[in-house]
Every structure is written in structure tokens, then in C-alpha cells.
Write a protein that binds this DNA or RNA. Structure first.
Lengths: 179, 179
DNA sequence: GTTAGTGATTGCAATATGCAACCGGTTCCG
DNA sequence: CGGAACCGGTTGCATATTGCAATCACTAAC
């Protein structure tokens, strides 16, 4: 359905249904995975995203999706001189994709099998409830939009990230051990 | 990323991440829209889905997506002799996509503009909270799985469907009036 | 036996994907 | 200065998927 064809981003939506409107932006697998890595992995640079991609995104696809997401208003690209690395940041609209991500993670946990170690993050988010989601949103606002965080409240996503990175590390070392 | 290529559904997932697992099934725009029409529009037959598609799905794409969704375990196809219409029903896994749908609708409402009349359903779902979502899930279980519904509780989705169909009707008649 | 309805399939042009090589620019280090 | 490493991409090309319209084999009703 030619989701967001990058050259023709001005195309009128296929319908005014909000679900369709969301799907026209988020309905591409790679768009979702790129957002996930920026959100949860705090990968802010092109090369970081390529290198850290669990699913192995190609550079042309990544370039295309980043452009689309910037044009769609989910990301901003900090202007940097050529040859110098440019940081991508989530906008508020991008941050608000988190609940969709949580819902997807929930569904994936319940209805697909997968590497148990990579499931930790989704399990934490599922079990943390709306409060944890709110806390993560607040921290994303601080990281990406510069909105100061209440120093009283614990940094929820630190916990998430630590759990996730420990799991990835475990996976990596066990792969090394296998080979 | 060759989401679910129908002939090669046995392909191993790209990663064990639950979000990726969900995206490999739900990451196709049409898959989501087909599920939406079955869930909210109660369209159970091939021709109904073609005719009622707000976005104009092509028959080959619909056939392909229905197969994929059956294989992925989100839908069942009632066996019917050739030439006789076959009913598609949601499985429990399919019904559980509702929260993802609600999250997408929320996001679409907040961050994209669209036909105001088609937004009614998403607004109702958003404002109804988890209780309404639960009630809709219960009614989907009755409709698609034959799980009896507590007759005491009101039929939440009747209300939703009525509001939605009124909006579509309004749209249709106004289009007719325009032409 | 014709007609309408069922769930699709087919052919074809246009588009998107996956992959690897490559590019111009910058920065670091000696 | 010279070279190497890193920066965000771009390019070419084979293959896969999409969108669209026509068509298919079959069933049921008249």
C-alpha cells in the first residue's frame, strides 16, 4: 500500500480512520524496529543503529526510514556538518509511540515464542503497568526533548536498559562460547 | 524484511525480541486493516471485506493476508466447499490484538488529522478505558469463539458499532449529496 | 441453462527490498 | 602533511512484492 514512499510523502491518507492513519506511518516493520532501538537502546546515530540492529537493517533502508520518520514528525535530526555525526531524537509524537510498542510487546510475549533473554524488557514493561510506562515516557522526554526530570522519582528506564543490556551481553557471550 | 512471505512461513524470526515477533505478523499495513474490519466491522467473508474496505484492498492482497493470518494463528477459516462462502473468525490471539489497535487509534487521534466522523470509534475506545476494552474483548469472544456472554453486562461493542456505522452512513450520504 | 455470487488466481507494469560496494567529508594521530 | 578510521549516507543490481484489472472454477437459485 506504499506506506510512505519518501518521495511522495504528501500523498493523501487512504482513509480518515485513526488506525489507518497510524498504520500509514507505523505500519512498516523497519520503522517500528528503528523506533524501538532509539527508544529502548538509546541509539542516536546512524552507525549505532546499523551496528546495534538485532535484525540486521541495511543502510539504505535505515536511511530511507529515518528520512520518513523525520518527515512524519516522529524524529528530529540535529543539523550537523557533513562528515560529522548527526543525532536523531524522538519528538513528542515519537515518544507517544511507546504505548503501541508496549502493546505489541505484550502480544508478542503472549502469542509468539522467542529468545527468552530478549523478552525481559517486554516483561518488565508489561508488569510495571501504566505507572512504569509513564515513568519511561518522562525519561524519554528528558533524554530527547531536554525536559528536566523530577530528581525525586527513580529513573525507570535505567532499570529497563540495564536488564536488557545484561540479557544481550549474556546472549553475546554465550554465542562466543558456542563458536 | 519479507514479513511473512506466505510460501515461507516457516522462516525463523529475525530476532527473539517480542516486539519484533509481533511486528513480523502485524507489521504489514494491510494485515492490521483486515483485522480492524473483522473486529470492528464484523466483516466475516471475503467479499464483505473487499466491498467494505475503506482503503480499497485488492483481492489478491486480501487473499494473501487472510492466508497469512490463518497460518499465523490469528484467524480461522471455517471449511466450506468451493464456491460456498467461508467465514473467517478471530482466534484468541487475534482478539488480543485489540489493545494494539486501541494504542494505534490513540496515537492516530493525537498525532494525525483525519476525517472527524471516522474518529468516533477510536475516541469511544480511548475514553472507555480498560473496562470498555475488556467488554469488547468479551463480546468478540462470544461472536468469534462462541464463548457465552454474561447477559447482565451491556454489550459494549454494539454501542461502538452503532456509533461507527452512523458515522460511515453520514459520510456516504454526504458524499452522495456532494456528487 | 443462465445468472449471480462464492473465494480466490493470473498476468503485468511499477515499486520496494536486500545486499555489497562505494562516496565525499571530517577527525584523529603521527 | 599523510594516512587511517569514522561519519552519514548513495548507488547499482538482482529479486520480491505491490497494485490493478481481468479471469477462473465452483455453487445455488431461478
Amino acid at each position: 500500500m506504499q506506506v510512505l514512499s519518501e518521495e511522495r510523502m504528501d500523498t493523501a491518507p487512504r482513509s480518515g480512520c485513526p488506525i489507518n492513519a497510524a498504520v500509514e506511518v507505523l505500519g512498516d516493520p523497519w520503522a517500528m524496529l528503528v523506533l524501538r532501538d532509539i527508544m529502548f537502546g538509546n541509539r542516536r546515530y546512524f552507525r549505532e543503529l546499523v551496528a546495534g540492529s538485532e535484525e540486521g537493517i541495511a543502510t539504505n533502508i535505515l536511511a530511507s526510514r529515518l528520512k520518513q520518520l523525520v518527515t512524519a514528525g516522529l524524529l528530529t535530526r540535529a543539523d550537523a556538518r557533513r562528515g560529522q555525526r548527526a543525532a536523531y531524537s524522538l519528538t513528542e509524537a515519537g515518544i507517544q509511540v511507546l504505548p503501541v510498542m508496549v502493546a505489541l510487546g505484550d502480544w508478542g510475549l503472549a502469542h509468539r515464542t522467542g529468545d527468552r533473554r530478549l523478552r525481559v524488557r517486554a516483561e518488565l514493561l508489561r508488569d510495571g503497568g501504566p505507572e512504569l510506562v509513564g515513568a519511561v515516557i518522562d525519561e524519554l522526554r528528558e533524554l530527547h526533548l531536554g525536559v528536566p526530570l523530577n530528581p525525586e522519582t527513580p529513573r525507570a528506564s535505567d532499570q529497563l536498559r540495564a536488564a536488557y543490556e545484561a540479557a544481550v551481553l549474556e546472549r553475546t557471550t554465550s554465542e562466543v562460547a558456542e563458536s
